[in-house]
Design a protein around this nucleic acid. Structure first.
Lengths: 177, 177
DNA sequence: ATGAGATGTTCTGAAAATCAGACCATCTAG
DNA sequence: CTAGATGGTCTGATTTTCAGAACATCTCAT
């Protein structure tokens, strides 16, 4: 168990008011890390049409979390029309297969073909390296904590349908000079 | 009726999976969180042209970290041509001012006007709420740790010019069936 | 059953973001 | 002074994104 070594302030308590001067905001950190991640994945899946998204789709199909294209699209945050094209390409490469859901024939079940699974295995090592690179400034324990925290936060968001009310809009911005 | 067991229960049944090989994607978590963040900021800065990027630009200008547009663009991961348009808009609103750098007149120093600083202060509360919402599934201590970890990792990446060698490319992908 | 409305998927076309490259002004090095 | 590099801007083309229509299928009330 690692104690919080005093970084720059003694107050690591639950006070939400941060000094907030030095560290750039959460959005910048997320954006920077995601860009690095996507760039890395882009290399790993360079031969795949659709780039990093294809990897995400394959990975998601493998996980069996989603039962149709719409759910997959929502889960990955991409448009359903884009999902159609993406799956067209992946299916043309025999990496996934679309089968009408016997229970609801409007839906298409997306499953990984053996070839797709094999490819995913081939990619996994590269992906691991990318993740390691992205979090390279952190030690193993920190990486583990951060990764777990991120996944927990992300799962929390995706489970609770954000009711369009994350926070109030600042409406009086004095932009009219 | 879905067979899916309800995930909306108050206590998230954390299926503490085997940590080994756990590749519930870093990329997916980053993407999901960033999307939620951007959506929230979009609301907060709805009246600002350029959306969340404008906020990032204002925030960066305020921090005084970058001395010209190119550095700002690189830091924020946006194209320098886009930066031009963005600053055009912000300058038209008198939120920032561009002044030729006396030391190198090719460069433009981007500084926050008093009006810009006032606006930034108005926005800060909303931004804080968004950040809190994005990490809402985490308790205060976890949020603190994750935020610190993210910033540390992001700073590590942005400081070390990634020398185009994040990891080797997987070149034999057997896509030719 | 039957009809009305909702949902999953695909397609179309328009709006918007992205990106490469030309261009000018300015700096630095020789 | 010239040559090459760099910061900023503009232009034009490619790509992505997005809204909406179309079609098939499901659900539900009647």
């Amino acid at each position: 168990m690692k104690l919080n070594s005093g970084e720059m302030a003694g107050e690591t308590a639950e006070d939400t008011r941060a000094p907030a001067g030095f560290d750039q905001n959460l959005g910048w950190a997320l954006g920077t890390l995601l860009r690095a991640y996507l760039k890395g994945i882009e290399n790993v899946v360079a031969e795949l049409p659709g780039g990093p998204r294809s990897y995400q789709v394959l990975s998601l199909a493998d996980s069996g979390k989603c039962h149709n294209q719409a759910q997959m699209a929502e889960h990955l945050g991409i448009d359903r029309t884009a999902m159609t094209y993406l799956l067209d390409d992946l299916e043309a490469l025999r990496l996934v297969s679309r089968q009408p859901d016997p229970v609801d024939r409007r839906s298409r079940r997306v499953t990984l073909t053996p070839k797709g699974r094999k490819l995913l295995n081939q990619l996994s090592e590269g992906v691991r390296q990318v993740e390691h690179h992205v979090l390279g400034a952190l030690n193993a324990e920190q990486s583990e904590q951060v990764l777990r925290g991120l996944c927990q936060a992300a799962n929390g968001l995706s489970h609770s349908k954000s009711p369009e009310n994350p926070c109030q809009v600042v409406e009086s911005l004095d932009l009219k000079d």
